[in-house]
């Protein structure tokens, strides 16, 4: 595998979405190529950045309540999970 081919696989490899064959060839290439290895590390970092830096908001309590009422049971347990998660 050359760098060009490996470069295309980096993204899917970060997600663990390569086929077994691709994964093996890809890893083999990484073991021989410093540049692609760094590229791979950067790709992993970028994914982490998105995950960490995009703020996840909690749904407003009024919305939770009204949706609980949709299904009318309103079990205490579920409300607690959502509110204090």
């Amino acid at each position: 595998m050359n760098c060009k081919k490996a470069g295309v696989l980096i993204s899917a490899s970060v997600d663990g979405e390569l086929s077994l064959n691709e994964e093996q060839e890809f890893l083999l290439h990484l073991s021989e190529c410093e540049e692609c290895r760094l590229e791979f590390e950067d790709a992993k970092k970028t994914k982490m950045i998105i995950k960490e830096k995009i703020i996840q908001f909690k749904a407003p309590q009024a919305l939770i309540m009204s949706i609980m009422q949709l299904t009318s049971l309103g079990t205490k347990e579920h409300e607690d999970t959502l509110l204090y998660e």
């Binding site: 949706i67 609980m68 579920h78 999970t81």
Partner: peptide
């Protein structure tokens, strides 16, 4: 209702 709460309501924050 019970199943819906167990399966669906738990994803409320993600959906929001």
């Amino acid at each position: 209702q019970l199943e819906f709460q167990r399966e669906a309501i738990v994803h409320l924050n993600a959906l929001y």
